[in-house]
Structure formats: C-alpha cells, structure tokens
Write a protein that binds this DNA or RNA. Structure first.
Lengths: 253, 253
DNA sequence: CGAAGGTTTGAGAAAGTTCAAAGCTGGTGG
DNA sequence: CCACCAGCTTTGAACTTTCTCAAACCTTCG
C-alpha cells in the first residue's frame, strides 16, 4: 500500500510558535486579565457536571472540545472552542457525561459566572465582548449544524479544514499552514462521519493535492482558493472567523 | 393504498386556544412589555440581511423557523424558535438567503439590539433573562446538532415530536396533545432527513400507535413514556424545556 | 522492545435518497 | 357552491452514500 506517498518530507516546516492568536478586543483583554488561567494537557477534561456554581471560561490558546459519549450512541463532539471563544456551563446541553476536553495543550481562563455577570454590568466593553462572543458562538453552532445536516462527507471535511485554517492557521511562503491538533476520530465525531470514511476523504484530498502534510499533524494548503471551492460555505466561515480575527491567513496567501 | 387508516376521525379534538404558553420569568415580562409586537402570518419572512441596525426579537406565540436555502445545496432549517425564545441578528450565521419564517401565525416582539443592551445594563432582571435565554438557545442548538449528527432517522423524528410536545403541547384526558404547525418538508429540513423518509417514519409511528392524528395537524400521544423510549435524549429535552416552562405537559399525563 | 492506540484500505451491509406515481387538501375563482 | 389547481403527503423500487467489520500498518510512549 502506498501510504503517505503524497507527503512533503522535504518541505521546510515553518515555526508555528508565532501563530498564537493575540486578542484585539479591548473587552476581551480586560476580561481575561480578571481570570485565573488553567493550563490543560492533551485529553485532560473539565467536567461540566452540576458540581457547584456555574463557571465561565475563555480559551486563550489551544483547542477545547465539547464532547459527549454516554447519552448518544456514538460519541459526539458538539463544538470546538478556538482561542478567543467563551463558554459558560449553562450553554452545555444537559446530557450525561458531557465534558470539555483539551485537544492539545490548552490555556483556559476561568471565572465564576456570577463574577462575569458583575463585570458585564460594570463595564460596557466587557459586556459588549461577552455579547458579541456569545452571538458568534451561536452563529458558528448553527453553521456547524448546517454543515452536518446539508453537506456531503467531502464538503464537511473541506469545511472543517477551511475553518481550522481560518482560526488557527497562518501564512508561510504563499501557503496557508495550520496545525491539525485533532485526530481522526475526534474530527469524525465532530463532522458526524465515520473515522474510516473521513480517512478515505482525507486520503483523496491528499492524492488530489488539496493539501499536503508531512506527518498528519500539520497541513499545508498551497492553493487556498481551490480548497474553498470544495465547500459551498467558505464565504460564511471566512466572515465568521473575521469577527474574532481581523487578519486572516488567507488574506496574504 | 391504505392511507390514513390509522387516523382517529372520531376523536374529540380538544381546544388548543388555552395552550398558549404564558411567560413566568419577570425579566421576560419586563422586556416584552418594552417591545413592539409584530404579527406574522404563515410563511411570512423576516429578512436578516444587513439592512441597517441589528435587531432583537422575542417569540410570544407561534413558531419561527430560521431557514436558509441558497448557500447550502438542500434547504435547511437551522433552528426553531418557540414562544419565549429570543434571537438577535448577530446570532444568525452569515449565509446568503437566510431568514426567519413563521411556521404558523406568530407574534414576535421586536426591539433594536442597542435598546436591549441598554435595558440589560439598567435592569438585572432583564439582563439575567437575556443571558439565561441566550444560554438555553445555544444549549438547544448543540443538542440539535447531536440529534442530527448521532441519531438515526427514527430517533430524530421521535426527538422532534418530544421537543415540540414539551414546548407547545398540553395535557388532555391523560394524553399529551400538540399542534404540528410545521409541514413535512420543514420538519425534514430541520432533521436533515428526506421528506419521503420522514413520511415513512411518521407512517410507521402511526401504525405502531406511537401517536395518533386526525388530520396531520394535531398529534395525540397517549403513551408518553413509550414515545420517550424512542429517543435516547428525552431526558435532556425535558430538562431544557423546563428552563422556559416549569410545568410540562408530560408531568400530568 | 512491546503494547496500545491511531490510520489506512477493502469488501459487504445498512440506512437513507431519489425518482416516479398516485392520493389528498385547501384555497380560488367562476 | 362547486370544480379545479397547486402543493402536500404517501408509498414503492432502484440507487448512493456512508457505515461496519476486519486486517494490516504506523507511531508513540513507557
């Protein structure tokens, strides 16, 4: 079997440490400065059970997955929280076994929700940031529902690549480069696809040169526009991403 | 073909005018008293285009569907807004042709979002209601994503029936009764199913006595627990519904 | 080095879709 | 008041897509 034959072993891998997305929203800066930061390791969980007061959190770096395994037959990733995204306990559906899980090393800023409520009342910048971020999260969740509900497997996979690239990627040598922190089963459970099917789709993408990757952890997209033609909602993804990140990686590619 | 053979032509149809869900949240009452009410007829649309200031709305009665047709290949109902649900323009994903559509005669209370922001700052009751309703909507949206992504066609249909019953139904003669304001294509587009497939599933439900209906517009569930066994997330749906409606129809059935 | 988990691929199976046809329903205009 | 029309609903049969299962390979970590 000629696996991995399309990888770019000799591609000069760029440094991604500069890819950390720094906040540009003044309300976000104010809010996260009031928070205690929790550093999570890959696969570490943050239980959402009703074990006390309601919590609020803000992702500073890394990737947080909202996962549920028990109550639905197949494990499901309900949502991906990217840097700049916020979440509060009450936003999670009341499913047994639901939890936030770090997909990679992740920094999370946390506060009791009660405190956030007070901050939003006293500071309009924070209030506006929380309202904006909440609305953006709902919009993204709806878009994700549309992706899962209305698009084919290949279109879903392409939408995922576009989304992750827009939110965590950056430009290098006229290519868009991004980390694939999530593994196949996680991506599959997010896209409501079987891991085998997703693997087939990814293999097909690599074979057609849609993206290249040396080690399955970093993807290199040399023709951004071509990737975008594979999903009918590339425009919406881009517009949503720009709400939290004014300068997108595809702008310079 | 023996169509409609399971209908209950001689069932005494109860009066549903008493089924209007009256708000119990003081913040909700305060907020909706500040709004201008718009009465929409079936199929009437409320465009969400960027045609001016951002709007906020609150459903007082009826059913509002967030629909998109152009940008995804198949038409999709992203969300159903029930009485008590709120929505603001920024919550809609930026898809061409997205709009709110009334599934039946619907009363919508509207305000410019700017005004709502001011009200939330000046009144903690309104602030808490808006925050609570926003969180509940996101939780429901995530649950809907899980339904579409992880459940079979039959389970999705059962989840839909349970959800609509919990939110708009009421109790009559130890049965749970609710209006089916949405037609087959709308329900199918909400559940990411084909209308034909959904019709088959509904026929099967009727044949098995899961629910009865005289005219396809009103459903009568005599064995609520049995309907709940058809979906693995009945508990979550019930818990979410109770956040906006303390007394559920199934409590008395 | 060995074990455990992640990835890839193929072949057969299942679930849902598409297409077509027929029946039903509600609204409109003569 | 009734005939008619458009759109909704139901159902069958053939077809696709995706899933399941199994096997082999690769990677990482202790």
């Amino acid at each position: 079997m000629k696996v991995r034959s399309h990888s770019l072993a000799n591609f000069t891998a760029p440094d991604l440490t500069a890819a950390r997305v720094s906040p540009h929203d003044p309300g976000q800066v104010l809010l996260q400065n009031a928070c205690a930061v929790l550093r999570m390791r890959r696969r570490q969980r943050l239980t959402l059970g009703s074990d006390g007061a309601e919590m609020f959190c803000l992702v500073r770096s890394g990737l947080l997955l909202l996962a549920v395994s028990a109550s639905v037959k197949r494990r499901t990733i309900l949502s991906i929280l990217f840097p700049g995204d916020i979440f509060r306990t009450a936003c999670a559906p009341p499913l047994p076994g639901i939890a936030l899980m770090a997909a990679t090393t992740t920094e999370v800023a946390r506060l009791p929700w009660r405190t956030v409520e007070d901050l939003t009342s006293s500071n309009p910048l924070i209030r506006d940031f929380v309202a904006r971020a909440s609305a953006a999260l709902l919009a993204r969740q709806m878009l994700h529902g549309a992706i899962v509900g209305a698009l084919s497997g290949e279109e879903r996979a392409a939408s995922f690549l576009v989304d992750v690239a827009l939110r965590t990627g950056y430009t290098s040598a006229r290519s868009v480069v991004f980390e694939m922190s999530m593994n196949r089963p996680d991506i599959a459970d997010y896209l409501a696809l079987n891991a085998d099917t997703l693997s087939r789709i990814m293999s097909s993408f690599r074979a057609r040169g849609v993206f290249a990757s040396a080690d399955n952890r970093r993807a290199i997209v040399s023709d951004w526009n071509r990737l975008c033609t594979l999903t009918p909602i590339a425009g919406a993804l881009q517009e949503l991403a720009r709400r939290t990140r004014p300068q997108l990686p595809c702008d310079k590619a």
